[in-house]
Amino acid sequence: MPKVSEEHRAARREQIIDAMLRCVARDGFHKTSMAAVVAESGLSAGAVYLYFKGKSDLIRAIAELVAGQGLSVVLDRAAVDVPPPHQVLASVLERVIAIGDERGVELHRVALQVWAEAARDHEIMAIYRREGGRGLAAWATYVERAITAGHLPSDADPARTAHTLIGLIPGFMVQRLFFEDLTPASYAAGLADLMGDPDPTR
């Protein structure tokens, strides 16, 4: 049946993405070849190449996965009862960690390597610019609603503020590499402190 076929295809695609994530987290971006991904996935080379032509396709899928999950959190939190920025930040970071836990990999280790690769690979840079543009739009929408809700100054610039909030996400992931006890809650509480929120648990 078509529905079963689509479910099968989706499961295979996720299986290959998971294999890529594990390879990069364990062996590094440059040492990870498509042959390594094939071996890690447990599928045939033909099955893997049916879904992904190469590493760039896999990186695009990973970028879209992480960005898409983050976007959904931001937009969901902006939709009703708009919470303060530190709560949205904590929710996004918790979701990123959850994605890694679900897939059995420390996602920040993969992200740092792929970001570094984007500095020299124009195709990967284009992927992140596109996803970054979507993220900026989502965060700017949240900022506009947070201003209306009184969480941010009325004269705050949505685009500038969105850029700053987005920048806190890779900041957390870099620090997580060195400070393994850093949590989304404690990191977000620091933002609340900077903003003068007397009750960061709100």
Rank of each mutant, 00 (worst) to 15 (best):
S5T: 15
E6A: 13
R9C: 03
A11P: 05
M20Y: 15
M20W: 14
R22T: 13
C23Y: 05
F29I: 14
F29P: 00
K31A: 14
A36C: 13
S41A: 14
G42Y: 11
G42E: 07
A45D: 10
Y49S: 00
L50E: 09
Y51C: 11
Y51Q: 15
R60T: 12
I62K: 08
I62M: 13
A63D: 00
E64V: 14
V66G: 01
A67Q: 08
G68R: 03
G70H: 06
L71W: 01
S72P: 06
R77W: 03
A78K: 00
A79P: 03
A79M: 10
V80H: 12
V82F: 02
V82N: 00
P84N: 07
V88C: 03
V88F: 00
V92F: 00
L93W: 02
L93T: 02
I97R: 04
D101C: 05
E102H: 06
G104M: 13
E106M: 10
L107N: 07
V110P: 03
Q113W: 04
V114G: 00
E117F: 09
E117A: 12
A119F: 10
R120W: 02
E123W: 02
I124V: 15
M125P: 03
M125R: 15
I127C: 04
R129T: 12
R130T: 11
R130W: 04
E131Q: 15
G132E: 05
R134Y: 07
A137K: 12
A140W: 03
A140C: 03
T141Y: 08
R145L: 12
R145F: 08
R145C: 07
A146Y: 00
T148L: 14
H151E: 05
L152A: 07
S154T: 15
A156L: 05
D157F: 10
T161F: 00
T164F: 11
G167I: 09
G171D: 03
Q175I: 04
R176T: 01
L177E: 11
D181L: 07
L182Y: 04
T183Y: 02
A185H: 12
A185N: 01
S186R: 13
Y187L: 08
Y187F: 15
A188P: 04
A189L: 05
G190A: 14
A192P: 08
P198A: 04
D199T: 11
P200I: 05
